[in-house]
Design a protein around this nucleic acid. Sequence first.
DNA 1: GTGGTCTAGACCACT
DNA 2: GTGGTCTAGACCACT
Lengths: 135, 135, 135, 135
Amino acid sequence: MVEYRIDRGSGVPAYVQIVEQTERALRMGTLRVGDKLPTAREVVAATAVNPNTVLRAYRDMEQAGLVELRRGLGTFVTRSLARPGAEDDSPLRAELTAWTARARAAGLERADVLALVTAALDAYDNEQHSKEEDA
Amino acid sequence: MVEYRIDRGSGVPAYVQIVEQTERALRMGTLRVGDKLPTAREVVAATAVNPNTVLRAYRDMEQAGLVELRRGLGTFVTRSLARPGAEDDSPLRAELTAWTARARAAGLERADVLALVTAALDAYDNEQHSKEEDA
Amino acid sequence: MVEYRIDRGSGVPAYVQIVEQTERALRMGTLRVGDKLPTAREVVAATAVNPNTVLRAYRDMEQAGLVELRRGLGTFVTRSLARPGAEDDSPLRAELTAWTARARAAGLERADVLALVTAALDAYDNEQHSKEEDA
Amino acid sequence: MVEYRIDRGSGVPAYVQIVEQTERALRMGTLRVGDKLPTAREVVAATAVNPNTVLRAYRDMEQAGLVELRRGLGTFVTRSLARPGAEDDSPLRAELTAWTARARAAGLERADVLALVTAALDAYDNEQHSKEEDA
DNA sequence: GTGGTCTAGACCACT
DNA sequence: GTGGTCTAGACCACT
């Protein structure tokens, strides 16, 4: 079961945070096709967000083809975003877990880690771009 | 010089994206105390965002003590968020760069990588929490 | 309920005037934790200021930790600035009320009174400074 | 000689602060007809404000008939705002000085004192208004 | 030329 | 209905 955490004050709309967190769970394989999302009522209880806000997020994901809202039954995952390589037991994941532990132990904050990763991704993408241009 | 990229479809307000990207540059040491941010006009030219939106972002960072807006002169970094361990030549960074390359080569998208890192951070934090509770 | 009065000829930005008047009400205890500020619309109706200007003021106070903007609900005081000694029934206040009446009756304008008080404050502060230096 | 103190960050334009502080000195009798204001150069040295900003303030006061700019000579007070009752040795002033000392000693901040005075002035004015209406 | 305030107005997020 | 973002555009403050 996904557990949503809404960071009010981040400036990111609540419904966007719900969508992002759901997609993340889909990519990680935490959430699979057929799985049920928490009910609006449950999300409300956990996050103090208004039910309409949850429904807005769920509706957005339905339009994106990720979930299906079944009246009276709940909301269910209809498409996987899971990647081979992102599974629980993948080597890549184990390596990252180890690296993260080292980074945090070295004093880097969550935001520092995220900044580093974003920078690494940007660097990689730029490099690929220039290779493509060379070709 | 920072270069802002605004993703208009992300649902994240433009001014928040500017703040986030600036903070990231501060954490990475790309931007240092005394450095000048691009002028509102320059950002407008590069991102097609309205000048008011840029100023809103800059003002927010000023109130957070990160930069100083000097009328007639420009906007300047007043506080560093740089971390030892996040420098260009740090081992942690080199390791992450290598890992990212492998992840991307293995077919993981940018969003997959970010999802993995977020998961790893969550896992680490949860573990620390439970250790603290044990203690 | 606070009632804002915007003096358009003063050269002081309208949003600053709103912040100042709110803080004054907080210091006086007129406004307490949990109290609701007038909605942007109400302020607009009363002052002919643009809603954006009101929101700018409210946002500034939110960042200062004084109030909380709750979408769909309103804006609420989250921190007190009240001082013992500034209450309605404090002797200090009674004395000042009496003094003010005498000053006004003696022909001093509002601005004169404010000038006198500012001078008295400056004099007191300077004296304290020099005492500290002596010590 | 007036000494200007510019509070950047107060949100009040620098030139307005200069005008306000000058008027205060005029009301207090600290500055009298014929007195010379500090030169732009001196103000710049003391406040790190741009000379044009000082000149802007002086020009505004010239238009208000308070001072006269004499090229090559300086800026001179041409009108008094002094009030009987606001002199250095007036009883009102002595009483206020004493009251201020007590207020500060009781823990009230500068801003608290100013808030109290403003409230007292408002209260007095409201009372007068209602008396006038009765009459 | 650089930042800063303000307005009117459109559209969105949230209750 | 309440706050929130964004735009275009006018005009101001400051260097």
